[in-house]
Simulated scan of single mutants.
Amino acid sequence: MPTADELINAHTTDRLASVMAAAGAAPATAIHDCGPLLEGLTFSERVDAVKEAVLADLPDAYPAFAEVVRTALRDSAFTGWMTFPVNAAVGERALTRGVFEPALDLLAELTPLLTAEMAVRPFLRHDLSRALPAVLAWTRHPDEHVRRLASEGTRPRLPWAARLTRLVADPTPTLPVLDALYRDTSEYVRRSVANHLNDISRDHPSTAVATAARWLTDPAPTTTALVRHGLRTLVKNGHADALALLGHDPDVAVQVVGPEIRTPEVHIGEHLVFGYEVTNTSPRTLPLVIDYVVHHRKANGTLTPKVFKLTTRSLAAGERWSAVRRHSFRELSTRRYHLGVHRVELQINGQPHGSAEFTLGARPDAAPAGPSGSPDRHHERAACPRPATR
């Protein structure tokens, strides 16, 4: 993942200032001057800072503002991440001036440069019923980027964006959008539809399964793969109806050996290694979703499960499948590890099959542990003194 500095920096704002000045916002001093101020800011903070500069430099009235942006669209230098804050500026300027449909049209023009999925969300929050006709029209657009915008921009739980709480509570208003796109010729669009369906499944599993079942009654050659991706969270969670829809019987006749732990003590930064073996003991071919569950130790000593993919495959009658898995315990900003006994468990078609324990220890070069098993706080403070107050 590129860093914030690699996406939007002073070089980006210099180029954006030149483009906007040539498009009619001369001299674009606010955009140019904000570049040096971006140092140390997060990506979202950079977007907000450049957005405010765009709003300062471009005309206050929306029609003149939009004309400058459309002129910039004809400049080949207007491209990449410099367009992202402009998308945000379009939404803010339009909604504060009472402009709605024309601004959505402009965002559809902008989205092929770099997705405007974030910028359409304030319109959905402001007036969902008014925005949806424009979104539905996008599903018929000849450009795949605009068709994808219809699905991606309306995702209830779009990553890195504020949730659309009305659609989290009731996803049915956007089902016509997904119905229009699930057979799309573009894999780029279909991937978004699958991710949107997965968002729905997190809050309304029965709605997601019913929608997928309806699509499978009138499928394209690509529909089964789309549905499988869209129901992936339900499959990992062992949801019986989702598994049955995809042909995976939870009560399969299999013999399971393992997981057999090869690394009974793992240190942070290393890999857990385990083997497993699955044999089909039934007289027919079985389609299997084989996952594994790591039960991570929490601070209070209890365990919390997280499911990881192993394989999806069919085993003929009597066929045996065996493999070895390496699971990384490298340090992540999104997960805090707690030392002590953990557990790994196999999961086949959503059902548990065998488990084994292993111990997670500190990195060999880690700070000494205090009584709680976490690095000693006094040692941390001594090794990393705070800078002097200025």
Rank of each mutant, 00 (worst) to 15 (best):
R166G: 00
A210W: 04
E101C: 03
A220V: 04
R125I: 01
V99A: 02
A131V: 01
N198H: 06
W138E: 02
P142M: 02
T111G: 09
A108P: 05
P171V: 07
L128H: 05
E144K: 10
A88T: 12
T217N: 09
M118F: 15
R130Y: 02
F100T: 00
A225W: 01
G98E: 06
E109P: 02
A94F: 09
A161K: 02
L110K: 12
Y188C: 05
P219E: 07
T217S: 11
L124Q: 08
R191N: 14
W160S: 09
A88M: 11
A131M: 01
D170H: 13
H145A: 07
H141E: 04
H145V: 01
D179S: 06
A89N: 08
N195G: 09
L124R: 04
V168I: 13
H204E: 09
P133N: 07
R155S: 05
V168T: 13
H141Y: 03
A94C: 05
A225K: 15
L104V: 00
R97T: 12
D218H: 13
A94D: 08
P176E: 11
S206T: 15
R191T: 14
A162M: 14
D179V: 04
P176D: 11
T139Y: 04
T115Y: 05
R183G: 13
H126M: 01
S151M: 11
R214Q: 14
A162S: 14
P176Y: 09
D203E: 12
A88L: 11
T224R: 15
R93L: 03
L149T: 02
P173D: 04
L164Y: 11
P112R: 10
P176T: 05
A194N: 03
T174V: 15
D105P: 00
A208C: 07
V90E: 04
M118K: 06
L132Y: 06
H145R: 14
D127G: 07
P112L: 09
Y182P: 05
T96I: 03
